[in-house]
Design a protein around this nucleic acid. Structure first.
Lengths: 392, 392
DNA sequence: ATCATTTGCGAAATCGTTTTCGATAGATAC
DNA sequence: GTATCTATCGAAAACGATTTCGCAAATGAT
């Protein structure tokens, strides 16, 4: 055994091995009851090697350069009144010189605010939701907030996983639009109980008690249906989404109200729930066309299915709008492209996103701001797919 | 003056006022040279009020509950081999019981990795870029990375500001697609020098030395042009974006190559740069129609302008494709809706996003992974807007 | 000149983790 | 029965900011 002296009592006789810890031989001095490991110069070098290991300049670097304390630097850069103008300019100039950028992580850790919003949204490859996100992003970034997004792909599983991923203290608030599949909301309720501000938009569930941003579901449906009626239609088929969706329910409600107003009999056979797939749309339209009294109009709750309907009717050589009027809901860009152009209700997706973001930001900034539900006003857009000579 | 006793020497005579600090009267004992402020019970209560002020359970909470140290808890939850199976299960069960979720901020602060990617993208209300983002988001979230986005709105100013906002240690890497306006890239180079992994996609600049993900700009343009030539077109107008854009240059190059291959003379009057606005597209088309030998085809670098072109031609009662063929580039959904349906080159936007994300993630995970440029293969889609009887 | 106040700055705690280095008790080897 | 290992765990230093409390010097008042 090589001669090893105890760093404390300087003796060597009393030193004996004491196991190996992390590949290093340890020793033990019986005399002074002291355990130790032999290091070369590592102890010194380690301290010196990382003045600022990240490469970024920190408050400490500035403090050293200027010759003040870290607290002073922090206050100077935040324009705290306690700091004299002289030191402020000195610190700020050095800060600029060293290209100082505050570490947002550290700031957030102590501030307990990340200036980041989370968005859970069904998808992005669709203009419809992408536009909402666009609105959200604009308002947020203008307020100095980042936006992190998650697509649920209309799958409940993915949605739940996303919520988890977002929620580890990384966001100050959540904007939530649930997937088509989602019908239970425990994953959201948990976060709500944690005290994270949440706002729902477009597709909402009243089961979760948050402020909501709606479009004019019922009123819009009324306007569209009334318009179709005014165009002379009496057998109006309505293409709804899955029945558990609130937007399905409310728009159906509007459809009913309009029919009732004009004393047109309700026919359950004219109400169809689809999953927005081409196949389901086609089969619903087929059914309607083969009724004893076939449809003379189709009102689709989504522009996408409305466009599919027009394309299908054209393929069947059924004239739109002469034989069958078609109207959609949402006002997507494709409605302007299809021929005939699509009559629809502009729900103003971008505005929905903006309003939602504003609502959430208000809640975040003003803790006790009253946050009422918001309904974004839309308007009917009449185009060729429903314009026809009135049968009066 | 009310009688105030020095908390140290218990005397009252020697105490005198010593200024007001933060709204509180301070005192000074001449005898024991001690400054002090009178607090009520605040000192005690403050300590007790925040065992875990955030409301979230922390490692410390678990440590206390189990009766071990914080380090042990951390290691147990990370499955460190040093911890015995017994304590692991104990800790994990308590952790679950207390609904522990690690604070990602604190983790990132010490780990120096946020598991977050930044995206700078021209816009989102367009299917084109939104689909790319969708691809990016999918790949990222599958790899356990969050995505934070910024729209530049094709404004250079906004882009620069966005980069700043993203970069404060909050992201592990950046996916970058520059705005239409951008022609200087200092804001990106700075970040590159800081050592942040960056990948450019779609619109790229070789001035910034990063791996890039391209679509088949040149080859795609060749395919489209050759197709138009094969359809009998000899006067093919090409609608480009701003001239400084690489995609403009490379697609023009492809256009030239195809024309040369078929020995068709190049006419500079047939080359137009537009800003993708309706007005600029219309005026270019107008010019072409009034040439001595007018165009018999329009090849637009973007589907959007191609659709605008078709609509405009239809309005002018010029037959597509009989009089003028139209082809686009990109394959947006609207191309399937317009009548006649649009011939275009599918650049596979979603795949571009995915490939870019994968490239970046590889760089992040494998520090020294070789990162070559990637070109995403696309393919020509021939539709009615260019299908006509060949003039041979 | 004496006392009170204001001004300007520093020390240290804190946020919630990870990680390094140490330490001890029981197991094992000689 | 020692002398060494090994298996487990703890203390404390990071990470980079903010913030509370404290104090000294300059300033003002009497």
């Amino acid at each position: 055994m090589p001669r090893v002296v105890c760093p404390r009592c300087e003796k060597a006789e009393t030193v004996q091995k004491s196991g190996i810890v992390r590949k290093k031989q340890r020793f033990y001095c019986k005399d002074c009851n002291y355990h130790f490991t032999i290091y070369h110069e590592s102890i010194k070098s380690r301290k010196k090697q990382k003045p600022n290991s990240g490469g970024q300049t920190s408050l400490l670097d500035i403090a050293k350069a200027v010759g003040v304390s870290v607290s002073t630097v922090s206050r100077a850069l935040n324009n705290h009144p306690d700091i004299s103008e002289k030191t402020k300019v000195a610190i700020k100039s050095i800060a600029k010189e060293l290209a100082y950028e505050p570490n947002a992580l550290a700031q957030s850790l102590v501030t307990r605010s990340t200036h980041t919003l989370g968005v859970i949204i069904p998808n992005l490859h669709t203009t419809f939701f992408a536009t909402m996100l666009s609105g959200i992003q604009h308002v947020s970034s203008q307020a100095g907030y980042r936006v992190v997004i998650c697509q649920s792909d209309d799958l409940h599983q993915t949605e739940v996983a996303n919520v988890q991923a977002l929620m580890n203290n990384m966001i100050d608030g959540l904007l939530f639009c649930h997937s088509l599949e989602t019908s239970t909301f425990d994953h959201i309720k948990i976060q709500l109980r944690r005290g994270i501000p949440i706002v729902q938009f477009y597709r909402v569930s009243l089961e979760v008690e948050t402020p909501c941003v709606f479009c004019e579901d019922e009123n819009g449906a009324i306007q569209v249906t009334e318009h179709l009626i005014e165009m002379g239609c009496r057998r109006i088929g309505i293409l709804l989404g899955p029945p558990h969706l609130m937007i399905s329910k409310k728009r159906l409600e509007g459809y009913y109200k309009a029919l009732n107003k004009f004393k047109i009999p309700l026919d359950p056979k004219l109400v169809a729930n689809v999953d927005f797939s081409t196949k389901s749309v086609h089969s619903s339209v087929d059914n309607w066309l083969h009724l004893d009294v076939p449809v003379d109009a189709v009102f689709s709750i989504s522009d996408k299915s409305a466009v599919q309907t027009i394309q299908y009717l054209k393929k069947l050589h059924i004239k739109v709008p002469d034989t069958v009027c078609v109207a959609g809901f949402g006002n997507e860009y494709t409605g302007e492209i299809i021929e005939p152009q699509l009559t629809t209700f502009d729900v103003r997706t971008g505005l929905i996103g903006e309003k939602t973001a504003k609502l959430l930001l208000n809640r975040i900034i003003d803790q006790n701001s009253t946050s009422e539900n918001v309904t974004v006003k839309g308007h009917l857009i009449v185009r060729d797919s429903s314009k026809r000579v009135q049968h009066l």
